[in-house]
């Protein structure tokens, strides 16, 4: 089985994101970029499945700017076999990304697609579900445990009510949650080795995606700030303050 892992280049999760002066987006100049952390977990899971003999090949793909090669190289250094970048400098919204992935999945004849449950930039949480719909295959979202047995996957999902188990037939789309695994650290020799692994760059247009209607993205603004910061000196003062406020 071939596993396809989709990754997105995003602002590193440690960066304090700021709205730009014009209010048209966020400050990206000189800001550290990384693999979307959820996608990194997806790469790790794919590699573990391969190491267990449950998959033969792990292919990482990204749809995004030329610079996303860096993130694909990181995934190759983690252990992925090869990478493909479909280069698009403009913003690709979730449905267009899902249509693009469908083309790639079919061309690669992938048996499993692993994706992060959401990207930490637009927080849309849509692409995996959309791909599964277009592909007419099962989806297991927000997965924190994954087991393959033959042609089925058993997935434990993190849901509001707790942990839920579902079983799906392959091929399938799985989107991963934080507690699925802890991604490995990349070592220097692996980085060197990754430089020799194949990374193809193709124009996004080559996929022939019919562009769906897009959301028009307008103003960006910081969220309203909470007025906090008052400290009380004692438990008695706290109880009094809460009573005065009418919440106790």
């Amino acid at each position: 089985m071939k596993i396809l892992v989709g990754i997105k280049r995003v602002i590193d999760y440690n960066v304090r994101v700021q709205v730009n002066r014009e209010g048209t987006g966020v400050v990206k100049d000189g800001v550290k970029m990384s693999i979307n952390p959820f996608d990194e977990i997806a790469v790790e899971e794919a590699l573990r499945m391969k190491e267990r003999g449950e998959a033969e090949e792990v292919v990482v793909v990204s749809v995004g700017p030329e610079a996303a090669q860096q993130q694909l190289r990181t995934a190759l250094a983690m252990g992925a076999d090869r990478a493909v970048l479909y280069q698009a400098e403009e913003e690709i919204q979730p449905l267009a990304a899902a249509r693009a992935l469908l083309q790639i999945v079919q061309a690669e004849d992938a048996g499993l697609v692993l994706l992060g449950k959401q990207a930490i930039d637009d927080d849309a949480n849509q692409v995996g579900q959309m791909l599964a719909a277009l592909w007419d295959r099962p989806q297991a979202t927000f997965v924190s445990k994954l087991e393959r047995s033959g042609d089925t996957l058993k997935a434990m999902r993190e849901v509001d009510a707790g942990l839920e188990n579902i079983e799906v037939d392959l091929p399938a789309v799985v989107t991963v949650d934080l507690r699925l695994n802890e991604p490995r650290f990349v070592k220097m020799p692996d980085i060197m080795k990754a430089k020799r692994k194949p990374l193809d760059i193709k124009p996004f247009a080559e996929l022939g995606v019919e562009m769906p209607p897009q959301l028009e993205v307008g103003a960006h603004e910081p969220p309203p700030k909470r007025q906090g910061g008052t400290k009380v000196e004692s438990v008695a003062a706290l109880v009094q303050a809460l009573k005065d406020k009418g919440v106790l």
Partner: peptide, 21 residues
Amino acid sequence: TTFGKDVLPRVAALLGVPQVS
């Protein structure tokens, strides 16, 4: 909710429209 997040994008893709999350 996790239910809404799971199901609605699948509906959006079937209808061929974007979703506001």
